[in-house]
Amino acid sequence: MEMINCIQAVLIRKKMSQKELARLMGKSLNSISSMCTNKSQPHLKDLKKMAEALDVDVRELLFPSKKN
Results as ranks from 00 to 15, higher is better:
Leu54Trp: 08
Leu11Asn: 11
Lys45Val: 12
Val58Trp: 02
Asn38Gln: 08
Met1Thr: 09
Thr37Lys: 09
Cys36Glu: 05
Ser65Gly: 14
Lys66Cys: 04
Ser28Ile: 09
Phe63Ile: 12
Asp46Gln: 07
Ser34Trp: 02
Ile7Asn: 03
Ser28Met: 09
Gln18Arg: 15
Ile12Arg: 12
Met3Phe: 11
Leu47Gly: 02
Ser65Ile: 14
Ile12Glu: 15
Asp46Tyr: 07
Glu20Met: 03
Ser31Ala: 14
Pro64Arg: 04
Cys36Ile: 06
Lys15Phe: 02
Cys6Met: 11
Met35Arg: 03
His43Ile: 03
Met1Gln: 10
Met16Thr: 12
Lys27Ala: 15
Val58Pro: 02
Asp46Gly: 03
Ile4Gly: 00
Gly26Lys: 07
Ser17Gly: 06
Gly26His: 01
Leu11Phe: 07
Lys27Val: 12
Ser31Glu: 08
Gln41Arg: 10
Ala9Lys: 14
Ala22Ile: 00
Asn38Ser: 11
Ala22Lys: 06
Phe63Val: 04
Leu47Met: 15
His43Ala: 11
Lys45Trp: 05
Glu60Ser: 08
Lys14Gln: 08
Ser40Arg: 14
Lys27Phe: 13
Gln41Ser: 12
Ile7Lys: 00
Cys36Val: 11
Lys49Gln: 11
Arg13His: 09
Leu47His: 03
Leu54Gly: 11
Gln8Gly: 01
Glu52Arg: 06
Asp46Glu: 12
Ala51Gly: 10
Ala22Gln: 03
Arg13Asp: 12
Lys48Gly: 11
Met50Trp: 10
Lys27Cys: 15
Met50Pro: 06
Ala51Asn: 01
Gln18Ile: 11
Arg59Leu: 04
Lys66Thr: 09
Ala51Lys: 05
Ala53Gln: 09
Gln18His: 11
Arg13Gly: 03
Ile4Asp: 01
Ala9Arg: 14
Lys49Arg: 12
Lys39Leu: 01
Ala53Ile: 06
Ser31Lys: 01
Asn5Leu: 07
Arg23Lys: 08
Cys36Leu: 04
Leu29Gln: 10
Leu61Asn: 00
Met35Ile: 10
Glu52Phe: 08
Gln8Val: 00
Ser65Gln: 15
Val10Thr: 13
Met25His: 08
Leu24Gln: 01
Ser65Asn: 14
Pro42Phe: 01
Arg23Trp: 00
Glu52Asp: 15
Arg59Asp: 07
Val10Glu: 10
Ser28Thr: 15
Arg23Met: 04
Lys45Arg: 10
Met25Glu: 08
Phe63Ser: 02
Leu44Lys: 04
Asn38Ile: 05
Met3Ile: 15
Ala51Asp: 00
Pro64Gly: 13
Arg59Gly: 01
Lys19Ala: 12
Ser34Asn: 13
Arg23Asp: 00
Ser31Cys: 12
Ala9Trp: 03
Ile32Lys: 02
Ser40Lys: 13
Leu47Tyr: 06
Cys6Arg: 15
Ala22Gly: 04
Glu20Arg: 06
Cys6Phe: 04
Met1Ile: 05
Lys39Ile: 05
Lys49Thr: 08
Lys14Arg: 03
Ile7Ala: 00
Asp46Ala: 12
Asp57Thr: 02
Glu20Cys: 06
Ser28Gln: 14
Leu54Gln: 06
Leu21Met: 01
Ser17Arg: 04
Val56Glu: 11
Ile12Cys: 02
Ser31Asp: 02
Lys27Ser: 09
Arg13Tyr: 01
Arg13Ile: 03
Met16Ser: 07
Gln41Leu: 13
Lys48Ile: 14
Cys36Pro: 02
Lys45Tyr: 09
Lys45Phe: 10
Glu20His: 05
Leu44Ile: 13
Asp55Asn: 12
Asn38Phe: 07
